[in-house]
């Protein structure tokens, strides 16, 4: 579904991604783990078109989307749940969902999809007139996921959905990730919560300092080694 070859993305002279290659298979949950500063969020924004890669190719369902605008990438069926959720704080929950369906022209179906989101996320229905900025962190995360789903994506990118959330909410988020995947959505997930990520992932990658350093199925690497590398990075100098 998603095929990334040798991506280099730089901020000025500093290369945050130094040739990243990885893939997310259709119908699976693929997980990307790694310490802070490894370049995970940069990769997510590069895929979604927010950042322009300097080199390499990104293919979505066979079509080259490298360097395209975020709008045309959304139109091709990719949606991103960004790091820190980035809901529209001064807009209501319902308007956030409408904004998620911005590119769609089938307004009756959009309305039906909003009802489906309310069924999946009852808290959002309770708060549908409330401004998104007044929601709790967990509710905002639900809203960010629902907003992304409103574009009816074939692949959903999620950037650290568990960030800053209480353990019970994290469980809820991962339950939803599993459900969405069962419904046929391909998922590419960036996480710091190694334990939860390895529980749901079919395949995972480790990224350190702008490079992919491991690729395999959960169980191929002992969890504590993954944790060590995902939080600290192997090449970290101590002392």
């Amino acid at each position: 579904m998603l095929d990334i070859q040798d991506i280099v993305t730089a901020y000025g002279k500093i290369e945050a991604l130094k040739g990243v290659s990885l893939a997310a298979a259709e119908g699976r949950i693929t997980c990307l783990l790694g310490p802070n500063g490894a370049g995970k969020t940069t990769l997510m924004y590069s895929i979604a078109g927010v950042l322009k890669p300097r080199r390499g190719t990104i293919k979505l369902a066979g079509a080259d989307i490298t360097g395209q605008s975020p709008a045309s990438i959304v139109a091709r069926g990719l949606a991103l749940v960004p790091e820190n959720r980035l809901v529209f704080p001064q807009m209501s929950v319902a308007e956030n969902l409408e904004a998620g369906a911005y590119q769609r022209r089938d307004s009756a179906e959009v309305a039906a999809d909003i009802e489906r989101m309310y069924a999946r996320f009852p808290r959002l229905k309770e708060r549908h007139t409330q401004l998104a900025g007044t929601l709790s962190g967990g509710e905002q995360q639900m809203l960010a996921v629902a907003r992304a789903l409103m574009s009816r994506p074939r692949i959903l990118l999620m950037d650290e959905p568990s960030l800053g959330l209480a353990p019970l909410i994290v469980e809820e988020i991962f339950r939803i990730v599993g459900e969405l995947n069962k419904d046929g959505v391909t998922i590419f997930l960036v996480e710091q919560n190694v334990h939860m990520a390895l529980k749901v992932a079919h395949h995972f990658y480790l990224m350190e300092q702008g490079r992919v350093t491991f690729s395999g199925e959960p169980g191929k690497l002992a969890e504590d080694e993954v944790i060590q590398r995902a939080y600290l990075g192997t090449s970290r100098k101590t002392g």
Partner: peptide, 17 residues
């Protein structure tokens, strides 16, 4: 809606298309 989205959170506005 688009104008308010851009005012509110421009990066998210780009992300939703």
């Amino acid at each position: 809606l688009a104008i308010r989205a851009v005012i509110d959170q421009p990066r998210a506005a780009a992300i939703v298309g």
